[in-house]
Design a protein around this nucleic acid. Structure first.
Lengths: 234, 234
DNA sequence: TGTCAACCAGCTTTCGAAAGTTAGTGTCAG
DNA sequence: CTGACACTAACTTTCGAAAGCTGGTTGACA
């Protein structure tokens, strides 16, 4: 699945660029200039151009004619829209997933949860951001939960929205500042509802889960407004 | 709004190509070769390439590395998914639109309906397909209805799904074969519910409207399976 | 001091030919 | 007659330099 992207050069650049944006190595709002990009990723202008065009289609990058490309800027307004859209779409997809998922889906969800449960949230050095490993396991768990949805369209929409939300999560600062919240327990409850095939309850839990996380991000975002200046993190 | 696309060359090609796909001048499943395209649209390979990349992002075109691009093939399965997704998302968007739309939105919807109502469905020569003018007015009416939704994300998703559905509509043959249906009345009812601010009823009507149209398409599609051979219609 | 026009540097866009890949055709040994 | 192999033609991908914009800056003029 990964290989198919690396068969062509813009595909490779696309993947790396995307990972760098989602991984927080490129700041929201930052301009992406071709000379820089092609030097950094060891490629031609054309290849970088195509990679950017693709990312525009995904909503991770914006473009204005003759003024170049930039990482999507974050805004409170958009976060609110995004959150509401996710609450609507993703919970519906989970509902369908729980109703239609087969045994294989169920086992994959259990597996993903097990992994998430065993992955440490904070690393020892940095207690501001969760570890990359945890973020990956978290994404994998949620994807596994949704994977049972038989409707490719709805599933794709939900995953697309999740991805954009991940950008906001990446850039919110105040993690772990929510004393009266037990994220692990929320995940556990989600899994339980899913395996018990209680679609309605699972959807309800996911609604809360998304809304809570978003509130956390909003509070974090208002502390430290978007800095466009900062360069590439090493 | 249109001008911004024409400021750059791939933008122009993108628009024309898109119009040609949506307008049925390019057959679903048809290969899109660069030599042909660049000759037809009087442009370079590079420009055609970028236009195609953008259309891939929109889901109107598919690509496989080293094997070129092609117009998305239509399938019954996908149509079913697409219809269900639209019923879920679009009706929700309409609900929000009716609840939140202001007076300006309301007047635009009335205007769009008036135009649709006065535009003839069939031309005099061709009674198989509705006229281009009707199709345009139809799209405009539905877009106007949804435009009141304050959530940009949900609105964009709904419009994206509509667009893809338009492809299916374009390629279904048996139009006007539904004796026990009055499309104009359905539209009238939708408008009435919207202006009366009966959000729940409007959403319900739209559900039926989408489902009925899709059934029509399904019936048409099973009559004449997808022909990939036919070339460009003049 | 303020305004405006011309200029400039740096970026984006565009092009098409060369290189690389694939699928299809025809040939030959088994 | 069948299968594999090599060859060819056509297409896709890649590149980077030339051309075209844009925003900012300098300098002249009121």
């Amino acid at each position: 699945m990964v290989k198919s992207e690396e068969r062509t050069r813009p595909g490779g650049v696309y993947e790396r660029l995307r990972a760098d944006i989602l991984g927080g190595r490129l700041v929201p709002g930052q301009r992406l200039k071709f000379p820089e990009l092609s030097r950094f990723y060891r490629t031609s202008v054309g290849a970088a151009r195509e990679a950017l065009t693709r990312l525009v289609g995904e909503g991770l990058v914006q473009s204005q004619p003759h003024q170049g490309y930039r990482v999507v800027p974050l805004s409170h307004e958009d976060l609110a829209d995004l959150t509401y859209a996710r609450v609507e779409v993703e919970s519906r997809v989970l509902y369908l997933s729980v109703l239609n998922g087969d045994m294989h889906w169920e086992s994959q969800a259990v597996a993903a949860h097990h992994l998430l449960d065993r992955t440490p949230y904070f690393s020892e050095d940095d207690t501001a951001h969760p570890t990359d490993a945890w973020a990956a396991a978290h994404t994998a768990f949620h994807r596994a939960l949704l994977a049972g949805c038989p409707n490719r369209r709805l599933l794709a929409t939900a995953l697309g929205l999740r991805e954009e939300a991940a950008l906001y999560l990446q850039w919110s600062v105040s993690f772990g500042q929510e004393p009266d919240r037990d994220v692990a327990a929320e995940h556990r409850a989600l899994l339980d509802a899913a395996t018990a095939r209680e679609a309605e309850r699972a959807a309800e839990l996911l609604r809360d889960h998304i809304a809570h996380t978003a509130q956390l991000v909003i509070r974090g975002a208002s502390d430290e407004p978007n800095t466009v200046e900062a360069g590439r993190r090493s």
